[in-house]
């Protein structure tokens, strides 16, 4: 068990401190598991297996409980993502409005496919559920920033800007 703590992000003192803080502050909340995991995902960017183990030990629950939650919800990721997360909205309006074309364009532009990260670790390409900006379809979310009314041409420019 000990050697698990030698793996990232637990071997990074700063990140470990953040995780410890999250655990300490929220452990007594009713239904703490979701709150804690959401915060770790937000602050660290992913919830790796060692971290799941660490949380399970701290909350004194079987790791299966933690892993069960992680694998159930699509927002939790178990590996590190790129610096920028490019999410293409796959809501109905965006799908009808041209997201499939944007995906083709992105694949060509970045030379990766969905759920992959560019070799330089800059961009991760994903599709996501409706972000509720349907009147601007098709929409792409870069980290928390929303870009609407995209065409393949505009999207190419956007990707070029991010890569800079």
């Amino acid at each position: 068990m000990k050697n698990l703590y030698n793996k990232p992000p637990l071997n990074n003192p700063e990140k470990k401190l953040i995780i410890d803080q999250i655990l300490e502050e929220n452990k007594d909340l009713p239904g703490a598991t979701m709150v804690i995991l959401n915060l770790i995902q937000e602050k660290i960017g992913y919830v790796s297996k060692p971290v799941q183990n660490y949380v399970a030990e701290f909350l004194d629950v079987p790791i299966s409980v933690i892993h069960g939650v992680i694998s159930f919800y699509s927002f939790f990721t178990m590996d590190q993502r790129g610096e920028k997360n490019v999410k293409l909205c796959m809501g109905t309006a965006c799908y009808v409005g041209g997201t499939p074309q944007l995906i083709d364009k992105a694949k060509q532009e970045l030379n990766i496919t969905l759920n992959e990260t560019t070799p330089d670790g800059k961009i991760t390409l994903e599709i996501c559920r409706c972000v509720g900006a349907c009147s601007q379809a098709p929409v792409v979310v870069v980290d928390d920033e929303l870009h609407g009314n995209l065409t393949p041409q505009k999207f190419t420019k956007l990707l070029k800007n991010i890569q800079k």
Partner: peptide, 19 residues
């Protein structure tokens, strides 16, 4: 955390409870 079924009331409650 991105699960559509959680809009169903019993699933929603399970999620608040942390499951």
């Amino acid at each position: 955390a991105g699960a559509f079924v959680c809009g169903e009331e019993t699933a929603l409650m399970a999620s608040i409870e942390g499951h």
